[in-house]
Design a protein around this nucleic acid. Structure first.
Lengths: 242, 242
DNA sequence: CGAGCCGTTGAGGGGATTCAAGCTCAGTGG
DNA sequence: CCACTGAGCTTGAATCCCCTCAACGGCTCG
C-alpha cells in the first residue's frame, strides 16, 4: 500500500492531476468534478493494492472513508438473521463503495476482495469539504437511498435464503412492521407471496394453511390477517434452529 | 384524487404549512427541510388516494415525479429475464419512491398499491428548484446509489429466482461482464457460489462440473476460468425455455 | 507425513414443484 | 331463482430437484 500525501501548490494540485489522469476517472466518482473541483482537493488520498481475500472494511464498524475500485472485484458479505453467511453484492471496476461513511453510518457489510484489487481510499472529510453548502436536501436524499439499499440487501439476505417456511415467516415479520392500527396486516395473495419469495402458489397456500393451523396467523377478510406475534417469533426461532 | 394547487402568499406559503403539519413529516422527505425551505415551495403538490392494486407508475416510463407514501404499502414488480413476475421491494408509510425521476431516468419497476394508499406527488421540478446550486457531486452520488440499488434489485430478480442451474448461469453471465483482459473471469470458490446463490457447496460443485462437461466453462487455475460465451447464452436460453 | 482445505462424486431422504381436482365466493345472464 | 363461470384458495399424489451425510482425491502446509 502506498500513501500519497500531497500538498497544495500555486499552480495545479498534483492530486488533481493524478485523478484527472486516472484511467478509471470517467467511471469513478470524480469524473463528474471539474478540474477546478479537483484542484480543491488537498487531503491525502491513499492508493492501496490488496490481495484476493483481503478485507477492505469490516461490517458494523464506523466508516471514515469511501473507496473507488480501480481494478478487481469486491464482494459484500453479511450474516443472515439465522446466522449463515450470505453474499449480497458484487462491485467491480469504477464502483464507489463504503458510501455509508458519507452519512456517518457504520459499514453495513464486510467488503472483501475477490481478486487482487486496487483501490483509492478517499477520506470522508475530503468529500464533506467539497460539499460545504448547508443544504439538507441532498443529504436527506442520500440517507433515503441508503436506507432503500439497506432494505434491498436485507431482502436478499432474509427473503431469498433458506427453506420456504422460513422465508414466509420472515415476510410476515416484515409485514407486521407495516401493520395497520387495528392490529391487522396486509395479507398478500398467494401468487404475490410466490412472486416475493420465489415459490409456487401451491407451496405458499400450504404454508399459510399450516401457519393458520398453528395459530400463528388468523385470516380476516380477503387481504387482511392478524398475527400472533409471540407465536411468530417462536416459529422463527424454531425454523432457525433447524 | 384531490389536487391542491397553491400559490405564493406574502406571509407563509400554505403548502409549507401543509407539509409542516403533515403527520408523516418527520418520516418524509421534507422533514429535513427548514420551515424556510418549505416556504420556497410554490409548485403544486398533488395528494392522491388510490385503491389497492392501482398502479402508481408503470415500469420503464420516463418519471416526472417522486412520491411520498402517507399511508399504505406499495410493491415494486418487474419481470425476470426469463419472463416471470417478481416482486423486488416493498415500501411503506413515509417512504420516498420513484427517485429515478430526480435523475431523469425511467422508473425501473412498476409500483402498485398493495393496500389503499395515500400519496403526495411531488413534481421533479420542485425538488430541482430547491437544489439549484450547480453542484455535480450530490447528483453523481445519487446516480451511483441509484445504480447500486438497481443492481441489488436485479440480483434479487436474477440470482434469487428459479432452479440452481439457471441461477448459476446468470451469475456466470455477470462475472463475464467483470472479465479480465486475458479473457478469463474470476471464478468463485464453491462455497462462495453457495453464499451468492443460496445453495450448498455440493450443489455448486455438481453444477460447475456439469458445465465443464458441457464445455460452457473451462477452469484455468484455482480461481480463474474461461467461458464459452455462445454456449453460455445457449445454455441460458435452454434453461429459460424450461 | 499427517492435517486441513477445497473440490468432487455417490446414495438417500426431504422439501418444493408439477399436475390435477375440488372448494368457496362473487358476478353474470338465462 | 339458479345454473354458469371464473378467480382465488386449498389439498392430494407423483415426481424431481436439491440438501444431507458420507467418502475420497488432490493439494498446500506445518
Amino acid at each position: 500500500m502506498s500513501v500519497l500525501v500531497l500538498h497544495r501548490r500555486r499552480a495545479r494540485h498534483p492530486q488533481a492531476a493524478a485523478c484527472a489522469a486516472c484511467e478509471v476517472r470517467a467511471a469513478a466518482l470524480f469524473g463528474a468534478l471539474s478540474d477546478d473541483g479537483l484542484d480543491r482537493i488537498h487531503a491525502p488520498i491513499a492508493c492501496q493494492a490488496l490481495p484476493a481475500d483481503a478485507s477492505i472494511f469490516p461490517g458494523g464498524t464506523a466508516g471514515e472513508s469511501v473507496y473507488t475500485i480501480r481494478s478487481g472485484i469486491v464482494r459484500f458479505e453479511r450474516f443472515t438473521e439465522r446466522g449463515d453467511r450470505r453474499i449480497v453484492r458484487l462491485a467491480g471496476r469504477g464502483a464507489l463503495i463504503g458510501l455509508e461513511a458519507l452519512l456517518q453510518r457504520p459499514y453495513l457489510d464486510e467488503a472483501i476482495a475477490c481478486t487482487p484489487v486496487q483501490l483509492c481510499r478517499i477520506p470522508r472529510a475530503l468529500i464533506d469539504a467539497l460539499d460545504d453548502r448547508p443544504s439538507p436536501l441532498p443529504r436527506e436524499l442520500l440517507q433515503r437511498m441508503q436506507r432503500t439499499l439497506d432494505e434491498a440487501e436485507a431482502w436478499i439476505a432474509d427473503l431469498c435464503s433458506g427453506p420456504a417456511r422460513r422465508r414466509l415467516l420472515r415476510l410476515l415479520e416484515r409485514l407486521a412492521h407495516h401493520g395497520r392500527s387495528d392490529g391487522t396486516i396486509w395479507m398478500p395473495r398467494r401468487d404475490e407471496i410466490g412472486a416475493m419469495l420465489d415459490m409456487t402458489v401451491e407451496t405458499a397456500s400450504r404454508l399459510v394453511s399450516r401457519l393458520r393451523r398453528e395459530a400463528v396467523l388468523e385470516l380476516c377478510g380477503p387481504r387482511s390477517a392478524r398475527l400472533n406475534e409471540p407465536l411468530l417469533r417462536l416459529a422463527l426461532r424454531t425454523a432457525d434452529a433447524d
